[in-house]
């Protein structure tokens, strides 16, 4: 069936709700409204208000309660309406979801999925376009995934629900309805911790994820260069092997992400490539990312976001060495 990312995640949620009666969806407006992006549309009617719960407006309440549900043997799927509001639940995520297994030496576990829309490019109000992945990636204990297409979105969600760990599932708002793709009807898993090589090439490696994937792909196709494109899909744990194998093969690395450049995922990747593959490189590692400033108001966002021109210039620079 042809689905966009939005309907693919809806289909994945339907799949996991059907296969696991301990799966519970909770969040603001996830019931009758089906979520502000309609990702949970139709699930209340199908599974009832015991399993699809409209909560009070309370982000820490949602995540803290979901942790308790998971401790109690359920498998909650919590929705935070926008990643920019999830900071209210930051403590519950990093102090408890991430640490509960460790502090109890695996006697208590927190199997749960936290879904939230991330990133911008869709002219939203302040706090509706955040790319906060590194805050969470810095806390060991959370798995962080971010699909860039409908197929991966469904498979990663199903995989996330088959894990015993807390999984932060980041959904790029801009990609919800950007394109459709053939998605299998039944259940299937996309592995967590494994990057996807979208395109094979020999002269340059571009590592990216989320909103930047379609832009990078289009730039590479237009330029007609022999580039390898790696879509991380999982931010933590990082698939270091895929990155290093490709970097060693091509000798040139460009990293592209929407989150601010400083202390970002790109910094982590660049450090690992520098530590382990420096002498295989023909050019300096280049990062293309947003500047280290708060996400601007919507009519300024075109000056902020990485775009085809910036990515193209970075590619030219890498190829010139």
């Amino acid at each position: 069936m042809m689905l966009n990312m939005n309907t693919a995640i809806n289909n994945a949620l339907d799949t996991v709700m059907r296969e696991d009666k301990n799966a519970i969806i909770l969040g603001e407006d996830v019931g009758k409204d089906g979520g502000v992006f309609r990702v949970t549309d139709g699930l209340l009617a199908k599974y009832g208000s015991d399993r699809v719960i409209d909560t009070p407006l309370s982000e820490a309440g949602i995540i803290g309660t979901a942790i308790g549900m998971a401790l109690g043997g359920l498998h909650p799927i919590a929705e935070i309406q926008f990643a920019g509001f999830m900071y209210l639940a930051f403590d519950q995520l990093v102090s408890h979801a991430a640490r509960y297994r460790s502090r109890s030496r695996s006697t208590w576990t927190v199997p749960m999925v936290v879904r939230t829309p991330v990133s911008g490019g869709v002219k939203t109000l302040e706090h509706h376009a955040e790319s906060p992945e590194v805050y969470y990636a810095h806390s060991g204990g959370l798995l962080i995934v971010e699909p860039s297409n409908p197929y991966d979105a469904k498979g990663l969600m199903i995989k996330a629900m088959h894990m015993e760990d807390p999984v932060l599932f980041l959904e790029p708002t801009k990609l919800y309805r950007l394109f459709r793709q053939e998605v299998p009807d039944g259940a299937y898993e996309v592995p967590i911790g494994k990057a996807n090589t979208l395109r094979h090439g020999n002269n340059l490696t571009i590592i990216t994820y989320g909103t930047m994937v379609p832009i990078v792909t289009s730039v590479v196709e237009k330029k007609g260069i022999d580039a390898e494109i790696i879509d991380l899909r999982t931010i933590n744990p990082l698939d270091e092997k895929s990155i290093l194998d490709s970097a060693e093969k091509t000798g040139r690395v460009v990293i592209v992400h929407e989150a601010p450049v400083s202390f970002g995922v790109g910094a982590e990747i660049a450090a690992r490539v520098a530590e382990k593959a420096m002498f295989k490189l023909n050019a300096p590692i280049i990062r293309v990312a947003s500047p280290s400033i708060p996400y601007p108001f919507p009519s300024y966002e075109q000056f902020y976001l990485p775009n085809a021109i910036k990515i193209s210039q970075a590619i030219d620079e890498a190829m010139s060495s």
């Binding site: 519970i24 820490a60 309440g61 995540i63 803290g64 309660t65 979901a66 942790i67 308790g68 549900m69 998971a70 401790l71 109690g72 043997g73 359920l74 909650p76 519950q92 408890h96």
Partner: peptide, 11 residues
């Protein structure tokens, strides 16, 4: 306290 709430939901 929120974990207690979620645990109570599970019960």
């Amino acid at each position: 306290l929120l974990h207690a709430v979620g645990l109570a939901f599970a019960q």
